[in-house]
């Protein structure tokens, strides 16, 4: 693989991490909790899309939509059943509950869909004039698959829409207010529980999209599929500064690029070690992450 090839596939993988990391970072920003079940929502989304398309013969786009919708409902349900009752519990209790939810989802998937891997179909195929299947563009010696292109574009669009929503939307501003100070937000008339539900809904819907994109690039679908991208995306969120939306974007992209470069130039087996080593260095130098906010309070 040439340098440019690696860079592009790094950005593409990083885009998936970024979309997942957005879910981690938004939920952390607002509910001040690490939702370790987030990665498994990716897996559920991928399964839903898989069955919608292969068993119910729905068009891929509809399949993705169904996955997004059901994951949104799943996210809200998880929050209401597992996390909302613990709103004033110690954060360790919430963390352990999140790990419990993660295992629950994985085992439910194991029971429902068996441990046998499913091969995720590639939706991103065009048929040329001669009827031949094309999976990507050829630009000289450079080959970019449609999956890669779509992933990058989708990530950028999500990032732009989300940033606009958080900065300008009424609900988006309310989310920022809740993330800073829940009681002060209540005194403004903001329903904090609803705001937290919306955050989980957005995060889980994005996880479904990320799931489909990830499976399109790495098509082996098993019940534990979500753990690794989930942990990497969590790392990306911390890397960029947890709680920061641009941080999740930057952290995700960098993590993807570093991972692919480590694979290409250092060692395939050591790539994950390199990724986490970079994280450790960044956190030593800047504990709040790359774009983490440290606001000095004047009294």
């Amino acid at each position: 693989m040439s340098f440019l090839d690696s860079l592009i596939s790094g950005i593409s993988l990083g885009s998936v991490y970024a979309i997942i990391a957005l879910g981690y970072t938004m939920v952390y920003g607002i509910a001040k909790m690490l939702n370790f079940a987030h990665g498994d929502v990716i897996m559920v989304g991928a399964y839903i899309c898989f069955f919608a398309v292969t068993r119910f013969n729905l068009p891929p786009l509809v399949g993705i939509l169904v996955a997004v919708l059901l994951c949104t409902v799943l996210g809200i349900t998880i929050e209401k059943l597992a996390y909302a009752p613990l709103r004033s519990a110690p954060s360790l209790a919430v963390l352990i509950t999140a790990i419990g939810v993660s295992y629950f989802l994985q085992n439910a998937a194991l029971l429902l869909w068996s441990p046998n891997p499913k091969v995720f179909p590639n939706f991103f195929i065009l048929h040329g004039a001669d009827g031949a299947e094309q999976t990507g563009l050829e630009l000289g010696s450079l080959r970019i698959s449609y999956v890669t292109l779509v992933t990058i574009v989708v990530c950028v669009v999500i990032m732009l829409v989300l940033t606009f929503f958080i900065n300008n939307g009424k609900l988006g501003k309310a989310m920022r207010a809740v993330s800073e100070d829940k009681d002060a937000a209540r005194l403004m008339g903001i329903n904090v529980n609803t705001t937290i539900s919306v955050t989980f809904a957005i995060g889980s819907g994005l996880a479904a999209i990320a799931g489909v994109l990830y499976m399109s690039a790495y098509p082996t679908l098993v019940p534990t599929t979500g753990s690794m991208p989930g942990i990497k995306a969590f790392t990306a969120a911390v890397f960029g500064g947890i709680g920061s939306i641009p941080g999740a974007f930057l952290g995700g992209l960098l993590l993807g690029v570093i991972e692919i470069f480590a694979k290409a130039y250092i060692s395939t087996q050591l790539s994950d070690a390199v990724v986490f080593a970079v994280l450790i260095v960044v956190l030593l130098v800047k504990p709040s992450g790359l774009l983490g906010k440290v606001v000095r309070e004047k009294v």
Partner: peptide, 11 residues
């Protein structure tokens, strides 16, 4: 108006 002002510092 809560004690300690509690304005949203990042907004």
């Amino acid at each position: 108006v809560p004690e300690g002002r509690r304005v949203f510092l990042q907004m």
